[in-house]
Simulated assay, not measured.
Amino acid sequence: MTKLEQLLSQYAAYHLDQKNIYTHFIGIPLIVFSIICLTARAGVIISGVELTLALGLLLASTLYYLSLDRIFGLIMLLIYALAYPFAYRIAQLDTAVWLSLSIGIFVVGWVFQFVGHFYEKKKPAFMDDVIGLAIGPLFVLAEMVFMFGFRKELEQRMLAEARKQRAAMDAQTVSLN
């Protein structure tokens, strides 16, 4: 099993209910976008180019995703390249407007997340492993790719392992009660 399969399976074990996955299609992009908005205001100008904290975070996460899978990493790079200019514009707004928009988007994103986990009847994956915060966006991308009919072998391997992990989690919960 590749590192990508391992991480996606671990995340998917908390996300087997389709309603939960659908809420993540909205919640996770909103959360990521809000973080880009919040961090696009902090930066330095070097040789006439503004380098923001958001760009650093996007670069680091893109490199991480590329290390796991070139195709997913390149798609994430494209998504980030499209999202960053909008987030940067928001970051240039008046402080109160910037914070209100960024925090509002963040809160709405988390509302979607927790509604999804209400359907799932499982806590979010990051509560057991903080790497879930980084894998969430990749999981949403992978689920979208799977919905379009691509990388079905990866999906099948991921789901098989996720179901095993979920059964083990459920068995552990029963034994604790």
Results as ranks from 00 to 15, higher is better:
residue 148 F to S: 13
residue 146 F to S: 10
residue 137 P to M: 03
residue 149 G to L: 15
residue 165 Q to E: 05
residue 163 R to P: 02
residue 148 F to Y: 14
residue 154 L to K: 10
residue 140 V to E: 04
residue 152 K to C: 14
residue 165 Q to P: 02
residue 148 F to Q: 09
residue 161 E to G: 00
residue 157 R to E: 06
residue 145 V to C: 13
residue 148 F to C: 11
residue 136 G to Q: 02
residue 134 A to Y: 02
residue 167 A to S: 06
residue 143 E to K: 11
residue 149 G to S: 11
residue 152 K to P: 12
residue 153 E to I: 15
residue 136 G to W: 03
residue 138 L to D: 03
residue 134 A to P: 04
residue 160 A to V: 03
residue 150 F to A: 15
residue 166 R to G: 03
residue 150 F to E: 11
residue 158 M to C: 10
residue 151 R to W: 15
residue 144 M to Q: 07
residue 157 R to L: 09
residue 149 G to D: 13
residue 150 F to Q: 14
residue 154 L to T: 10
residue 164 K to W: 01
residue 142 A to W: 01
residue 145 V to M: 09
residue 147 M to Q: 09
residue 136 G to F: 00
residue 158 M to I: 12
residue 167 A to P: 01
residue 155 E to P: 06
residue 142 A to C: 09
residue 143 E to Q: 08
residue 160 A to H: 06
residue 157 R to A: 14
residue 136 G to A: 13
residue 164 K to C: 02
residue 148 F to P: 04
residue 148 F to W: 15
residue 145 V to N: 11
residue 139 F to N: 02
residue 152 K to E: 14
residue 151 R to H: 13
residue 160 A to M: 06
residue 136 G to T: 02
residue 159 L to R: 11
residue 155 E to I: 08
residue 164 K to E: 05
residue 155 E to Y: 13
residue 139 F to W: 07
residue 137 P to I: 04
residue 159 L to H: 13
residue 165 Q to W: 03
residue 138 L to A: 05
residue 167 A to L: 07
residue 144 M to W: 10
residue 160 A to N: 05
residue 151 R to V: 15
residue 167 A to Y: 01
